[in-house]
Every structure is written in C-alpha cells, then in structure tokens.
Amino acid sequence: WVPTKREEKYGVAFYNYDARGADELSLQIGDTVHILETYEGWYRGYTLRKKSKKGIFPASYIHLKE
C-alpha cells in the first residue's frame, strides 16, 4: 500500500459496491470517500458519512475530485 500523494484526496462513488470481506468498504452511489492509500487498482479509506469504518474498495468505482 502506498500513501496518497496529496494530503486531502477525495472521490465520489459512481457505482454501488458491496463489501465481500471484513477488510472491504461498502459504497453507495454518491458517497464521498477520503482516500488514504492506493494499491494495484484499489483504494483504502473511509466514507464521510461513516468515518469510523475504514476499508478497501475498487478504484474503478470512484471519480476523483480535483
């Protein structure tokens, strides 16, 4: 896992994603996520609506905010 280059990196989910394991994070369309790390097509972070739950999710489900 590699920390993100920018201190504040955010994105928005444009697909729903159902977590398949305890380390994964479920997403709903429109969720804003804070991205902490990246690795081979995956991000690690949390949604702003539930900051206490961190997990991994596919990068392809996220539109990055500039």
Rank of each mutant, 00 (worst) to 15 (best):
W1P: 08
W1F: 08
V2D: 08
P3A: 05
T4W: 09
T4L: 08
T4R: 07
T4Y: 07
K5Q: 10
K5S: 14
R6P: 14
R6M: 11
E7D: 12
E7A: 11
E7T: 12
E8T: 09
E8N: 12
E8D: 10
E8Y: 11
K9D: 04
K9H: 11
K9Q: 13
Y10G: 02
G11Y: 04
G11D: 02
G11F: 05
G11M: 04
G11P: 00
G11W: 06
G11N: 01
V12S: 02
V12L: 05
F14E: 08
F14Y: 11
F14V: 15
Y15V: 15
Y15A: 15
Y15N: 14
N16C: 12
N16W: 07
Y17T: 00
Y17G: 01
Y17M: 03
D18H: 12
D18F: 11
D18I: 13
D18W: 08
A19W: 01
A19F: 01
A19G: 07
R20P: 03
G21S: 14
A22V: 11
A22M: 09
A22Y: 08
D23M: 07
D23V: 06
D23Q: 09
E24R: 02
E24F: 06
E24P: 03
L25F: 01
L25E: 00
L25W: 04
L25Y: 01
L25K: 00
S26K: 03
S26N: 07
S26P: 05
L27D: 00
L27A: 00
L27M: 02
L27C: 06
Q28S: 11
Q28W: 07
Q28E: 10
I29A: 11
I29H: 04
I29G: 02
G30Y: 04
G30K: 01
G30M: 02
D31L: 05
D31N: 03
D31A: 04
T32R: 13
V33Q: 00
H34S: 05
H34R: 15
H34I: 14
I35H: 01
E37D: 08
E37S: 08
E37K: 02
E37T: 05
T38C: 10
T38N: 05
Y39L: 12
Y39T: 11
Y39P: 01
Y39F: 14
Y39N: 13
E40D: 13
E40N: 14
E40L: 12
E40H: 09
E40F: 07
E40K: 12
E40S: 09
G41R: 04
G41N: 07
G41M: 05
G41F: 05
G41H: 07
W42G: 00
W42A: 00
W42S: 00
W42M: 01
Y43M: 08
Y43R: 00
Y43G: 00
Y43I: 04
Y43Q: 00
R44T: 05
G45M: 06
Y46R: 04
Y46S: 05
T47L: 15
T47N: 15
T47F: 05
L48Y: 08
L48V: 09
R49F: 12
R49E: 12
K50Y: 13
K50W: 10
K50T: 11
K50G: 09
K51F: 08
K51V: 11
K51E: 09
S52C: 14
S52R: 08
K53G: 06
K53L: 11
K54P: 08
G55E: 01
G55M: 03
I56R: 08
I56M: 10
I56Y: 10
F57V: 01
F57W: 03
F57R: 01
F57M: 02
F57L: 02
P58E: 03
P58A: 04
P58V: 06
A59H: 05
A59Q: 09
S60N: 09
S60M: 14
S60F: 07
S60H: 11
Y61D: 02
Y61P: 03
H63G: 07
H63K: 14
H63R: 14
L64T: 06
L64E: 04
L64K: 01
K65Q: 12
K65G: 09
K65H: 13
E66P: 14
E66Y: 12
